[in-house]
């Protein structure tokens, strides 16, 4: 492993809005992702996971967002201070995204072939047989009869298929860092497993690093090397996956893991996090 990590985030702070009613979405977080490493980011809804992910290549609309402090070093270069021209080639080619909302991230007026082909042409101009590459990409994410599906528009696909098209598009660029924001929410476990295997394979072959945002602890256990737990804009716990899952230190992490429903252990009610309780625990 090399000395400088691929990605290093230092004291990153992001606000929405100004003055009194500003939301402090991210409050000074630091973490690193090494070459070829998979880091999972977990945490409740609204804890700042997506905001952190989008900020890596400055995709947040400013305003309302504001980068209040910190730096994001990708290969040693601070993306927060790069110009638009320097940043653009980085998006897609170096850092590719799978966005959280598949339905709204695909363009409704183009076929899926067109959209994936565009990504390939843009980032891998050396590919000759673009159509074949598109078919291969769709096949890799488990879409049946990919040739027949090329001409489909996004609304003709099921939710899970749209999500897989997004994944195919991001992976077709062979990025250095893949930022996957809840990539498998609409997928059943078998496809989920297939996607995770695919990620693992690409990671091995291309040396890709992955930042994986998810609610699914099964996936975390399956693929992540390290876990970062976010709570209200802070990182409250960080460590090796096995350590964090088996022996969570922070009360919030413990509560979160407790909520996971398990097969074959039928309870009358599912456990949910009681926020008052966490709050009480957090008070010294």
């Amino acid at each position: 492993m090399c000395a400088t990590p691929l990605l290093e985030v230092r004291n990153l702070a992001i606000d929405f809005g100004r003055g009194e009613n500003a939301t402090h979405a991210v409050k000074g977080i630091s973490f690193t992702i090494a070459d070829g490493e998979t880091v999972a980011v977990v945490g409740e809804s609204g804890s700042g996971k997506s905001v952190t992910a989008l900020s890596l290549t400055r995709l947040l609309p400013t305003p309302p967002a504001r980068y209040v402090g910190g730096e994001i070093l990708f290969n040693g270069r601070n993306t927060l201070t790069l110009s638009g021209d320097e940043l653009r080639p980085m998006r897609g080619k170096q850092i590719a995204y799978i966005f959280q909302e598949p339905g709204t991230s695909l363009n409704p007026v183009f076929t899926i072939e067109f959209q994936i082909a565009e990504a390939i042409r843009l980032h891998r101009p050396e590919v000759k047989d673009v159509r074949g590459e598109v078919v291969r990409a769709l096949d890799l994410v488990g879409i049946r009869d990919p040739e027949k599906r090329l001409g489909d528009y996004p609304h003709q696909l099921s939710g899970g298929m749209q999500q897989r098209v997004m994944i195919a598009m991001a992976l077709a660029c062979h990025p250095k860092l893949l930022v996957a924001d809840e990539p498998t929410t609409a997928l059943d476990v078998t496809i989920q497993k297939q996607i995770m295997d695919l990620l693992r394979e690409l990671k091995g072959r291309l040396g890709m690093s992955i930042m994986l945002i998810t609610h699914n602890f099964g996936i975390v256990a399956d693929i992540a090397d390290r876990v970062v737990v976010m709570f209200r804009g802070h990182i409250v716990e960080e460590g090796k996956t096995a350590d964090v899952l088996r022996n969570p230190q922070h009360p919030y992490t413990r509560a979160l893991i407790d909520c996971v429903p398990r097969l074959g252990q039928k309870q009358r009610r599912l456990k949910a996090i009681d926020h008052a309780e966490i709050e009480a625990l957090l008070k010294p």
């Binding site: 409740e44 939710g159 929410t185 509560a255 979160l256 909520c259 429903p261 599912l270 949910a272 996090i273």
Partner: peptide, 20 residues
């Protein structure tokens, strides 16, 4: 139709309980 897929585990539990 997959009412809890997009939610985090804790919120998911709340919604399932609510439905019940």
């Amino acid at each position: 139709d997959e009412p809890v897929s997009a939610l985090d585990v804790s919120v998911q539990a709340q919604i399932v309980n609510l439905l019940q």
